[in-house]
């Protein structure tokens, strides 16, 4: 399922808004999650899961083509942990 299909599906169930309005709001949902994490805060949604950032240390990588070592800087990566309800739904 793509985002467009998700918007379509949500729009079918909301009759007070146009599809365009629904699209803007669905985008806002995902943007809010991104902004919250970028601001260093985590998100916990009961029954769905939580989003937080994980720290990655800097390490020495290699250029796969030349084999020469390159420094990979420390970074933060978004991490999602499925909630209990979602875990159970999927593993049926």
């Amino acid at each position: 399922m793509t985002k467009a299909e998700l918007i379509e599906r949500v729009s079918e169930q909301i009759h007070t808004l146009t599809k365009r309005q629904t699209e803007i709001i669905v985008n806002a949902v995902f943007n809010s999650i991104k902004d919250t994490l970028a601001g260093g805060e985590k998100i916990e949604i009961r029954g769905f899961g939580s989003f937080r950032l994980r720290q990655r240390r800097s390490r020495e990588g290699r250029n796969p083509k030349t084999g020469s070592p390159v420094a990979v800087p420390a970074k933060r990566v978004p991490f999602f942990k499925a909630g209990k309800e979602l875990k159970e739904l999927v593993d049926h």
């Binding site: 399922m1 793509t2 985002k3 998700l6 169930q13 629904t22 669905v26 949902v29 949604i45 049926h92």
Partner: peptide
Amino acid sequence: IVELVLSVVKTTLQKGETVKI
């Protein structure tokens, strides 16, 4: 809408289908 988005994502995953945003 927040509720609907989450529930559509959940039911899609329940079917084993990937959700690409």
